[in-house]
């Protein structure tokens, strides 16, 4: 069964995200709280669950984070738009896999993404969105690491 693999445009990791992080970091009022939990939480995801977790986290960002964040700086708006539209493209790629039923969701995968939503709900929406944007590097790195032909989580 061929795995569903997507690729992360390097410019998102090297350009878009650093500019978002620099602009938003000072406004994060809960530095000790994390939405995406620790990278360990995501590291335990099995290869067979990578597609499902990726798809659900892309949906999480699409439907909650990008919507809950109100941005006024045109430059930061552009960088967030770049990531949001790249996520949309990734999701379309994954949806083609889901048509062939290669995006199975185990209980572990469901629990992992449920934890992320629960963390998000602990904070007020705009604070949670701000923090989630600041943690995009965790998610982008996780995608980059787990969507290689040879990757084994």
């Amino acid at each position: 069964l061929r795995r569903c693999l997507i690729s992360v445009d390097r410019s998102l990791i090297e350009k878009s995200f650093p500019e978002i992080k620099r602009a938003l970091q000072t406004n994060d009022t809960f530095p000790n709280v994390t939405i995406l939990s620790t990278l360990e939480n995501l590291k335990s995801i099995q290869p067979v669950d990578v597609c499902c977790v990726t798809s659900r986290l892309l949906t999480f960002y699409r439907d909650r984070v990008f919507k809950d964040h109100q941005e006024t700086s045109p430059e930061v708006m552009r960088q967030i738009s770049s990531i949001a539209n790249s996520f949309l493209y990734m999701q379309k790629t994954l949806e083609q896999c889901q048509v062939h039923n290669q995006c199975h969701c185990s209980q572990e995968a469901t629990n992992a993404t449920r934890t992320i939503h629960d963390n998000y709900d602990q904070l007020e929406a705009s604070s949670a969105a701000l923090k989630s944007l600041g943690e995009l590097d965790i998610f982008l790195a996780w995608i980059d690491e787990n969507h290689q032909e040879t990757s084994t989580a």
């Binding site: 699409r62 919507k67 045109p74 708006m77 949001a84 949309l88």
Partner: peptide, 20 residues
């Protein structure tokens, strides 16, 4: 507007980086 904005945040238009 990228597709994201037009689908989910249609009121949002982003100033071009070069020509605004």
């Amino acid at each position: 507007q990228g597709e994201y904005e037009s689908l989910y945040m249609s009121h949002i238009w982003i100033p071009s980086s070069q020509c605004s």
